[in-house]
């Protein structure tokens, strides 16, 4: 730094094309941090995936044995399908709900402020606490399914034994995820909706547009970037969901809620097959990166433009 400053190349007042473009050195702290806590562990995990290790002694090289074992493991392949399903269900259920509540909460009315503060509460609780609460609430003999037998009695809720069928178990995970994460995304949408200039609504009102039309023709298009942000966050969060599964279903019944992240945990810390677990970790990292890239490309998030040009 000290050697560069006298030359004035990155000085605050230097002009021309170099404005606001500090040297590569400026990013060193961030890059070092990222390398140390993301790239290096990733490299170690990639190396571990070619070894056999049970945490005692040192890992020994086994070549691609773990990889071929995992790719012929039906649970491994299924766990990625379950991960994708849980993520998709998360996005599909959380987006409309948090969009509507967010837009509603953006209004200036005081009661909305108070109510949205209440809606925010689930976000303040830890995932584990939330999961433990729902395990008790959904107890078939003493929880809601028993108290509200009229509702839960039918085949739709598997007669109240929610953790006994794959469909209802996935339903529970989706519901608890929604209960937990909707407040966060509501907050994002609320912020986005508040940023929409009033003039747009005033102009639309003059043109005779009602509430519903205003929502579809002004609010929704204006929230496009907000929605992409929210969906990318849901995507990455959904692909790595682990804690709720650990407490609520433990991957059961059978292996029908064993997501990739949970399967990785069982392989590493229950079966002590760190080699196999590392294979899942690498595949999950690659999978998540690819999905994020595709989303960014398809949505045009990388060249995101202001939605308020010309306003």
């Amino acid at each position: 730094m000290t050697t560069l400053t006298p030359s004035g190349r990155t000085g605050r007042n230097s002009g021309g094309a170099r404005i606001g473009r500090p040297s590569f050195l400026w990013s060193m702290p961030a890059i070092t941090f990222f390398a140390l806590f993301a790239i290096v562990p990733l490299g170690v995990v990639a190396w571990l995936s070619f070894t056999s290790w049970d945490a005692i002694g040192s890992p020994h090289w086994v070549g691609t044995a773990n990889w071929s074992a995992m790719f012929s493991d039906p649970i491994f392949l299924k766990s990625f399908r379950i991960t994708a399903l849980l993520t998709a269900l998360g996005i599909v259920t959380q987006t409309p709900v948090s969009l509507l509540i967010g837009v509603w909460a953006a209004g200036p009315q005081r009661n909305r402020g108070i109510l949205s503060a209440l809606y925010f509460i689930p976000l303040l609780m830890s995932s584990l606490a939330i999961s433990v609460v729902w395990v008790s609430l959904l107890n078939p003999y003493f929880g809601l399914p028993h108290e509200l037998h009229a509702v839960f009695g039918g085949g739709l809720f598997n007669d109240g034994f929610l953790f006994s069928s794959p469909t209802t178990a996935i339903g529970v995970l989706t519901f608890v995820g929604m209960w937990q994460w909707t407040p966060f995304h509501t907050l994002i949408y609320q912020g986005g909706a508040r940023a929409i200039p009033d003039v747009l609504y005033q102009a639309a009102a003059i043109d005779g547009a009602g509430r519903v039309r205003q929502f579809f023709y002004i609010t929704l298009p204006q929230l496009r970037n907000t929605m992409m942000t929210s969906i990318v966050l849901m995507l990455v969060g959904g692909l790595t969901t682990f804690d709720t599964i650990l407490v609520l279903t433990q991957g059961q019944p059978g292996t029908s809620t064993t997501s990739a992240a949970y399967y990785m945990y069982t392989k590493a810390f229950q079966s002590f097959q760190f080699g196999n677990a590392s294979v899942i970790a690498v595949v999950l990292a690659v999978f998540t990166t690819l999905v994020s890239l595709v989303v960014v490309r398809v949505s045009g998030w990388d060249k995101m433009r202001s939605t308020q040009e010309g306003v």
């Binding site: 078939p140 003493f142 007669d159 006994s164 069928s165």
Partner: peptide, 24 residues
């Protein structure tokens, strides 16, 4: 109990003890 109903019940969360004490 009904087939697979046991998958919705845990010992660790005190549910089976509750079933015993309450005559379920």
């Amino acid at each position: 109990g009904p087939a697979k109903s046991w998958d919705s019940v845990k010992f660790t969360s005190g549910q089976t003890a509750q079933m015993m004490v309450n005559g379920i």
